[in-house]
């Protein structure tokens, strides 16, 4: 049986890992490669690096960083943030990224998923979806959750799968940064409706939340940032506890 995955997410700005609540109020928390190596050693199953640099210089720095991450880390890693063309994806693949995640650009130009997946394979394409509940409907949002779109979460996720995405990374913007648990109901429905793996993001605050999202939320992987970065949850203890609860994890 394939194990449930634990994925620390590192938001990177100009080569440094930062974390903010709702993408503002950023605090620098450490070096991107050192933190990745430490997480891999502790038992993280994959890593996600998101580039949140706003400038062209910042983006250039990120490609260099991806090359150094590939050299230093012996587990798979996904990179995302600002990927808006096949060329962007190619550059990151050449630098050594195992997967890329696309978000706003895919919403604006869904054919981007098709183009990247048909060139490099579905395994390379993670479709990240940020959504929040607006008047009872789960609406896809872009630009860090600030701009709601006309798209609805579940139909967009199905379309992304049909277009060749190999995984869906769903972040509930209503839960992100709250540390009050993941959007388990929506995640379970995504898992039910899709045949590709679903990564849960947004809301992790405790080991119980992660156990909950991997069982009731039916997620294939749980992603979290601050609870790992600030040492609130250590991965070895987390995995031991998940295993004790009968959840299949790699130890």
């Amino acid at each position: 049986m394939v194990a449930k995955r634990i994925i620390p997410c590192l938001d990177v700005k100009d080569g440094k890992v930062v974390k903010g609540i709702h993408f503002v109020d950023l605090k620098e928390v450490g070096d991107a490669i050192e933190m990745g190596v430490a997480y891999a050693r502790e038992g993280a199953d994959e890593l996600v690096y998101l580039d949140i640099s706003a400038s062209r210089e910042g983006r250039g720095t990120f490609v260099d960083l991806v090359g150094r991450i590939a050299l230093g880390i012996d587990i798979p890693f996904t990179v995302g943030g600002g990927i808006s063309s096949l060329e962007d994806a190619s550059r990151l693949l050449d630098a050594g990224a195992d997967k890329i995640s696309i978000n706003s650009a895919a919403v604006a130009h869904p054919e981007l998923i098709t183009r990247i997946a048909s060139k490099y394979g579905s395994q390379f394409v993670v479709c990240a979806i940020d959504a929040r509940c607006i008047d009872g409907t789960w609406r896809v949002t872009t630009h860090g959750g600030t701009r709601p779109t006309e798209r609805e979460l579940f139909s967009w996720a199905r379309e992304a799968q049909e277009r060749g995405a190999g995984e869906i990374l769903f972040t509930s913007m209503d839960h992100d940064g709250t540390r009050s648990g993941y959007a388990c109901e929506q995640l379970a429905r995504l898992s039910e409706e899709l045949s590709i793996p679903v990564i849960a993001s947004g809301g992790a605050g405790s080991i119980a939340h992660i156990a909950d999202v991997l069982t009731r939320g039916r997620a294939d992987a749980a992603l979290a940032a601050s609870i790992f970065h600030y040492g609130q949850i250590r991965i070895p203890e987390l995995k031991k506890e998940l295993q004790a609860q009968g959840i299949n994890v790699r130890i």
Binding site: V2, R5, D45, E46, S122, Q123, I196, P197, D220
Partner: peptide, 15 residues
Amino acid sequence: LPEEGIKVPHMGWNT
């Protein structure tokens, strides 16, 4: 082959 509760691609760590 498609199978209830089994995701494809087979992605992640397995024994």
